[in-house]
């Protein structure tokens, strides 16, 4: 300490606490107090996050449900089932005409692999569902 600050030098470190004191057992209990405060801080924070996310979670759930219904229901009612995977018995002219325009239908029937379908349409009265053979021929052969 410089001579300039003689008084400061004299009183320095009379007591490291500089006259301050603390309540009994303060330092023994501070760690538990802090850990308690940290837990108290973190719990509401977790709740807050859930509170903030809740509407978004609900919205996400609704969208997921809609997506699930959109992708599942068509398969259940067989609308989206690919033609190549469908059995002959499930194919009707109505069904084909809802899915394809005339030229696509002709292309479909003229493909070698699909001859069987055409044949069964001609011969299986149940598959024709009230449509005459002439109607089918008109449709597929102009």
């Amino acid at each position: 300490m410089k001579e300039d600050f003689k008084i400061l030098g004299d009183i320095k470190k009379q007591n490291n606490s500089a006259g301050f004191k603390v309540p009994d057992n303060y330092f023994e209990s501070i760690e538990d107090k802090v850990m308690g405060a940290i837990e108290a801080e973190e719990k509401p924070l977790a709740k807050k996050v859930v509170m903030v996310l809740k509407p978004w979670l609900a919205l996400a759930a609704v969208f997921t449900l809609i997506a699930l219904v959109y992708h599942t229901v068509p398969y259940i009612i067989d609308v989206n089932k690919p033609i190549a995977q469908a059995s002959y018995n499930n194919i009707s002219l109505d069904f084909l005409s809802t899915r394809y325009d005339e030229s696509e239908l002709i292309d479909f029937i003229l493909e070698d692999d699909n001859e069987g379908i055409y044949e069964s349409l001609k011969t299986d009265p149940e598959l024709l569902e009230g449509i005459s053979l002439e109607d089918v021929e008109d449709l597929v052969i102009f």
Binding site: V22, F27, A37
Partner: peptide, 28 residues
């Protein structure tokens, strides 16, 4: 570090209650 930090804070804020608050906030 609790004692060193406490006395450092205490000499700035002076009162024990304030030092206690500031120390807890510091540790958090």
């Amino acid at each position: 570090y609790k004692e060193r930090l406490y006395w450092h804070i205490r000499k700035i804020v002076l009162s024990h209650d304030d030092a206690d608050d500031a120390l807890q906030n510091s540790f958090i």
